[in-house]
């Protein structure tokens, strides 16, 4: 029945299709790509035309192949750092909301601090100083992105903590661990899932921003990195920024639409 709601919303459906398409490209990209995206060629700065459907860059590299291959980095960073942020956020929020008191106070002060601090600049500084290795970027992005989930989870725990089924479980002698993990968390989950799905596009954007600023590995292809390179050729080659940027835009848009669709499915009371 809820799926029927979704079918009446073509945009949400488009978002889901786009997100699935993106994952497919990220998995299959390297095999589908017509050329090696790092291979230099004689045909430099070619406008889009067969056999270079998206044109070539100043070193004769095929842009279409780069766009196809770049999806993988975006997907890995987007999924893993969003997952990390949500895990940390849920853990912090659950402990704060369940324990209350001084623990809650301390955790919430820390959360507020991370929320107020200029997060992107910190990520930028860390990536620039310690190298923009993929694993590190994922960890740092997760390290600044968790507070929103933590606040949401805490609010959910505060709201659910006093409800009858929780009190009942506790009076039956359930351990705190069991109450938190088996009673409260499953009921607190729907809005957290929505927040997690919206964390993916914002991680993808943050990663692309780092690469755009030139913090990328020259031996791997990323969309942001391609835009960084394009910055010097805006006058000669519109296709250099256009296609990788469009890939970022469409991916982020798809995930945002899909997140709204998810919100619609999980929180049917809320009408957008």
């Amino acid at each position: 029945m809820r799926w029927r709601r979704l079918r009446r919303r073509p945009l949400a459906l488009a978002g889901l299709v786009g997100a699935v398409l993106f994952v497919a490209v990220a998995i299959a990209g390297p095999w589908v790509a017509p050329r090696n995206p790092l291979a230099l060629g004689q045909d430099t700065l070619r406008a889009p035309a067969p056999p270079y459907w998206f044109g070539t860059d100043e070193l004769g590299r095929d842009i279409l192949s780069g766009v196809l291959q770049g999806a993988r980095v975006s997907l890995v960073v987007g999924l893993l750092s969003a997952a990390g942020a949500v895990l940390v956020g849920v853990a912090v929020g659950a402990v704060a909301g369940y324990k209350g008191g001084a623990v809650d106070e301390v955790l919430m002060r820390v959360t507020e601090w991370v929320l107020v601090v200029p997060q992107f600049l910190i990520v930028l500084v860390v990536a620039a100083i310690f190298g923009s290795d993929l694993g590190l970027v994922i960890v740092v992005l997760a390290a600044v992105a968790w507070p929103a989930t933590a606040r949401l989870t805490r609010a959910q725990f505060l709201a659910l903590g006093g409800r009858e089924f929780v009190v009942a479980a506790r009076s039956l002698g359930a351990s705190s661990r069991r109450v938190v993990l088996r009673e409260i968390l499953p009921n607190a989950l729907p809005p957290i899932v929505v927040a997690a799905s919206l964390q993916i596009p914002s991680s993808i954007l943050a990663e692309a921003s780092l690469r755009f600023l030139g913090l990328s590995d020259p031996n791997s292809v990323s969309w942001g990195g391609m835009l960084n390179q394009a910055q010097n050729f805006l006058q000669q080659a519109w296709w250099m920024p256009f296609f990788p940027g469009a890939a970022i835009f469409l991916t982020v848009l798809s995930f945002n639409l899909a997140g709204e669709a998810l919100n619609d499915l999980l929180n049917p009371r809320r009408e957008v």
């Binding site: 945009l11 692309a208 942001g224 835009l227 805006l234 920024p241 469009a246 970022i248 982020v252």
Partner: peptide, 25 residues
């Protein structure tokens, strides 16, 4: 609303490059 969602998903640096190419260059 559709434009809003699109605008929210635009990478700021890409938008900058597009505007630069269209209106300056």
């Amino acid at each position: 609303m559709v434009l809003g969602l699109a605008g929210y998903s635009l990478p700021v640096f890409w938008l900058g490059q597009l505007l630069l190419m269209a209106f300056s260059l």
